[in-house]
Design a protein around this nucleic acid. Structure first.
Lengths: 226, 226
DNA sequence: AGAAGTCGGTTGTATTTACAACGGGGGTGA
DNA sequence: TCACCCCCGTTGTAAATACAACCGACTTCT
């Protein structure tokens, strides 16, 4: 676990918690490391979520499937990302989503009961942890809102525009990589893969963007269109 | 304010807080009542949100507009509903959404700073309040996920199915009312109003649903289709 | 009663999208 | 080297949707 302390202590979940307190806090919330092979189901839709996960290594996806077999990728998970906290906090008995390991994954799990019930005796970092959790939840909510704006736009083209500009901002660089294959990108945007490819081609021909594989570049014209 | 105590104390935000403690808590977080005429902007997109709102009377909508003038209704607000907590908690400087008064609205506002900074001296209900806030935020997150599923479905028809069944469950009755006009429903589902009307007509002709105005009934056939 | 506004449905047309099928490039393993 | 697989672009066609326009029913106001 020590190997990951750096990653853990910089997580928003542990803001304003001193490094020397971190280990006792982790013990207090019964932190456990688990490993999953590629394609494993880290959380299976339908089950109750009692633990909060934190990705230490590898990549994952939060996905949902509808009755027609369409896969909706809700979000991508990278090291440092937190998952499961929404359903743990809300106390839902059956998770509507699954979490799958896109690559082999190592993740840390925290017992939610131990987080929410302030332990009077043992450790006094709980209130800080809960405050941090509040911020993490709010942040996630905002990401959801962004995804709603994205899905709410009327055309694949504007979905792509929102998607790309948001990822560029997150990357902070102009030719930038996205963590989605073309099929995954289509599932994230909830559109047909071939239709997405077609629209991307149109945008390239129009001189708005450039791309190879999952590397995209937004050209000046991208920002001009009304 | 006394007039609304019943509504306030039953709000999830104040779970497990005794009625006798409520008033001092409200004073502690600087609760203020404000009134708005119909169509007023309760929160204007672009501004910072420092207060958490609680609807006492009237109805409102959380809306977002895109560059093309399309209005996306994120959610409807009724008495007892909380708003603004996401952006207050996350500390964003510019709200991406507006909150508008659909009817004349009376709302209670709580100072978020006073909520999040535990006041050691004055009152000891803060930790309970923050715990409640956690649950409210998680709940909102789940509602967002539902909306994402809804917007993610590939056709207006399945959007309508998800929308109606979800509202039926919330209403707990079969002929049930929805708090949206047809234009509002279209904006919530992010589809064209006339296309929505057309699909609703198809579904009625197919014997799946019945409706007049904003009263809907799901017929047995509704559940049969694969 | 008449004017004006709102709401919701209908219709026609152009556009967009889904769906299915195909094919080429690149990687991998036998 | 060959066969196989995965990823992604392309194409054609059918279906779904957006958009604009119109119309009737119903309210409200004067």
């Amino acid at each position: 676990m020590e190997k990951y302390l750096e990653l853990i202590k910089e997580n928003a979940l542990f803001d304003n918690i001193k490094e020397k307190d971190l280990l006792s806090l982790l013990a207090c919330v019964r932190a456990k490391k688990k490993e999953f092979p590629k394609d494993a189901l880290i959380i299976l839709a339908g089950n109750e979520v009692r633990e909060i996960g934190l990705i230490l290594e590898g990549r994952g996806q939060i996905v949902e499937e509808d009755y027609h077999g369409h896969r909706n990728i809700l979000t991508h998970l990278a090291p440092g990302d937190v998952f499961g906290e929404v359903f743990a906090c809300a106390g839902v008995k059956s998770s509507p989503v699954s979490v799958v390991a896109e690559t082999p994954v190592k993740a840390l799990f925290l017992d939610f009961q131990r987080i929410s019930n302030v332990c009077e005796s043992a450790c006094r970092f709980h209130s800080q942890l809960i405050n941090n959790m509040l911020k993490v939840l709010a942040q996630k909510n905002i990401e959801n809102n962004r995804k709603i704006s994205c899905l709410g736009s009327r055309s694949i083209r504007s979905k792509v525009e929102i998607f790309l500009s948001s990822h560029m901002r997150k990357a902070g660089a102009n030719p930038f990589l996205i963590p989605y294959s073309r099929a995954d990108m289509a599932d994230y945007l909830c559109v047909d893969r071939s239709a997405l490819s077609f629209v991307l081609g149109e945008m390239r021909d129009a001189g708005l963007i450039n791309f190879q594989k999952n590397k995209f570049e937004l050209l000046p014209g991208f920002w001009d269109q009304e």
